[in-house]
Write a protein that binds this DNA or RNA. Sequence first.
DNA 1: TCATTTATTGTAAACGATTTCTTCCTAAAA
DNA 2: TTTTAGGAAGAAATCGTTTACAATAAATGA
Lengths: 346, 346
Amino acid sequence: MAVTIKDVAKLANVAPSTVSRVIANNPRISERTKRRVREAMEDLGYHPNYNARSLANRSTQTLGLVMPSSADKALQNPFFPEVLRGISTKAHEKEYTLYLSTGATEEEMLEGVMGMVHGRRVDGIVMLYSRIDDKIMAFLEQQNFPFTVIGKPLVNPDSITHVDNDNFRAAKDVTEHFIKKGHTHIAFVGGNLDLVVTVDRLSGYEKALHEADIPYEEDYVVHVEFLKEGGQEAVMELFSLEKPPTALVVADDLMALGIMSKLDEMGLSVPEDVSIISFNNVMLAEYSSPPLTSVDINIFQLGYQAVNCLLEKISDPDSGNKRVCVPHKVVERWTVQTLNDDLEGK
Amino acid sequence: MAVTIKDVAKLANVAPSTVSRVIANNPRISERTKRRVREAMEDLGYHPNYNARSLANRSTQTLGLVMPSSADKALQNPFFPEVLRGISTKAHEKEYTLYLSTGATEEEMLEGVMGMVHGRRVDGIVMLYSRIDDKIMAFLEQQNFPFTVIGKPLVNPDSITHVDNDNFRAAKDVTEHFIKKGHTHIAFVGGNLDLVVTVDRLSGYEKALHEADIPYEEDYVVHVEFLKEGGQEAVMELFSLEKPPTALVVADDLMALGIMSKLDEMGLSVPEDVSIISFNNVMLAEYSSPPLTSVDINIFQLGYQAVNCLLEKISDPDSGNKRVCVPHKVVERWTVQTLNDDLEGK
DNA sequence: TCATTTATTGTAAACGATTTCTTCCTAAAA
DNA sequence: TTTTAGGAAGAAATCGTTTACAATAAATGA
């Protein structure tokens, strides 16, 4: 079989425990012995067995990732690769590895997570989404297992460490941007309503309208899947209204792409006929035609910070719960039309 | 601490070994005892510890995934999410979980993989790419560790289980498609030349030209990064030629998008001025404007089959090496222009 | 010189399963 | 009645580490 610590010990003429200490670079071992042991390890091509280590240690140096239960769909959105990048970068910095949960339904996902937690397969978990009334989050909380959430937990957000954008603010900014440009018929195309991000953005949108004394129109708010097909449906609904909107706040770049392609089909052009600002600013936004004005929510940082918090939480489980807010920034491109002769107050 | 097999044993008044057998549903245990033990497990909320199990078993029920060393860049391409979906689906079917390697350079990646293998962290590995002269693949081969490759290994492909498209054929098809439409100035925009997929496609392209007696023009072949920026560079090079091409075989949808956006800037339109066929047929292809004619290489299947083969290999290490070929299909959209009055021979 | 540190290494018990032997019954065969 | 076979469960070794607790020898101090 593989070479073990005992083999090394034998060759170096020391006890196994000594070898273990050499690996940990324990200062209580003399330099001379260390050298001898290291040589033996080299000679035999020794590599520690992680399972044995984890077992003895009760720590795995791996982090679990929980995707939305419909990982298949989620993965089609460039958000996830990017957040994965952030996660992976930080994890690698600290020599943690990643463990991907799989499962098609929420039920299966939960089972998987219970496996991770009870089976001590991971030291902590990053939830890549925040959904209202989520069983997995409830489970983790109840188990008091270290975890962080990307997005804002709806219930008691103060008692759960999470990293998020100020989505309320962001949506408000965007809506105000439109208003400043003279738009008054502004629609909101949001994702699934049980994602917290959606409700946050919706409130921001409402607030901006309210402050500008623009009446809130039920018909101008539509919720669809976080995918491109969704965008298409949305367009159908909105542009069959008596008074279709001139501006769209869209929850996701991909959805915006879908919308634009549908708009194109209908003979409407962006931004002449309808202006669009979407969220996420994934690479596509830059290369669509016309390039999308989009809110950069710094997806990479979301992932990076989430791991950062999680590791803190793992090393000190009693540390308080944090809330990290990653700044956003709307990057202007070519999908917004000015309707008034806006003098740019500022 | 957590509840262990011993706790269960005590409560059920049996030996630990009996509990273990109940978990494995060993027929040598009577139904009555089984029931009793199961009840005890239920009562205590017992869950087996994976590390302990792995240690005793020498099997982990997890698969390692190796991304291209520049995972950050790779992840920006929709190819990976999609292949991940395929992998994740099959893995979940067979109750395997996934382990993601991290690392920025090839050196770091290799270290990570060595860790996985020597540390017995995974039962097998899926390589998500196939690069010429890849150290990681060499290592796995030399260690005789179960692994499968997505893409075709350049050296002794017969001795390495892999799943791939017939990229030669696909590129040839595409090029012939152009030729049939009357194009003779056909350029090839490929990815990094040390990816096997690139060389395969390039040969397909060459072959088609050759068979049609169209001279192969050095200047018409350009290699760039598998990303959008790459596409832009390519355009610059190609369209500053004396006789610019009228048709482009592009190795990747994302690159094609970049190319189109650049072309747009330069006042050239697709497909009127230049026709494009790209590879991968990711979702974007459908929603770009105009929608891209693209070769669907069935990315999901690539991942799914790769895991399939890997599991076979794991359960029977001496099973021969397989080559699975996933079929491709060009899906026609709106980026190809007919130049001749092609009577469509068929 | 003898007691007491101090520096270094060894012993053996965890960690939480699996698995190979045994052992103990009970019932059938002789 | 004795022997034997077989079914059911237990004992103990094992997987490869870590680590608490000695143990030893050299060094220090009085």
